[in-house]
Simulated assay, not measured.
Amino acid sequence: MSTLKSIIFDLDNTLLWDERSIDEAFQATCGAVEQETGVSAEQFEHIVRQTAKQLFEQSDIFAWADMIEVTDLEALWGNFTAQHTAPLKKLSEMAPEYQRETWFLSLQQAGIEHPGLDVRLARMFAAERRKRPLVYADTLEVLHVLRSSYSLVMMTNGSPDLQQEKIDSIPGLSDYFDHIIISGTFGVGKPDSSIFEHALKLLGLTPQEAIMIGDNLNTDILGAQSVGMSTVWINHHHAEAPADRKPTFEIRCISELPATIQTI
Rank of each mutant, 00 (worst) to 15 (best):
T3R: 14
S6G: 12
I8Q: 04
I8N: 02
F9E: 06
D12K: 04
E19M: 08
S21H: 01
G31F: 13
G31C: 11
V33T: 06
T37W: 11
E42T: 08
Q43I: 06
E45I: 12
V48Q: 00
A52V: 12
Q54P: 00
E57G: 05
Q58P: 00
I61E: 08
A65E: 05
E69C: 06
E69A: 11
T71I: 08
T71M: 11
D72K: 09
L73P: 00
L73F: 10
W77P: 01
T81K: 02
Q83A: 15
S92H: 14
M94N: 00
A95P: 01
Y98F: 14
Y98I: 03
Y98D: 01
E101R: 13
T102V: 15
S106N: 06
L107H: 12
G111S: 00
I112F: 02
H114V: 13
V119E: 10
R120L: 13
A127V: 01
R130N: 04
L134Q: 09
L140H: 09
L140N: 08
R147A: 15
R147N: 10
S149K: 13
S151D: 14
L152F: 06
M154G: 00
G158P: 06
G158M: 07
L162V: 00
L162Y: 07
Q163E: 03
E165I: 00
E165N: 01
L173H: 09
L173P: 00
S174H: 10
D178C: 05
H179Y: 10
H179S: 01
I180R: 01
I181G: 04
S183L: 12
F186L: 11
G187R: 06
G189A: 15
K190W: 13
S194K: 08
F196Y: 14
L200W: 04
T206G: 09
P207M: 15
Q208I: 04
I211L: 15
M212T: 11
M212D: 06
M212K: 10
D215S: 13
D220M: 08
I221S: 07
G223A: 09
G223F: 11
A224E: 10
M229Y: 11
M229N: 08
S230T: 10
V232I: 15
I234F: 09
A241C: 12
P242T: 09
P242L: 13
R245H: 14
K246T: 15
T263E: 11
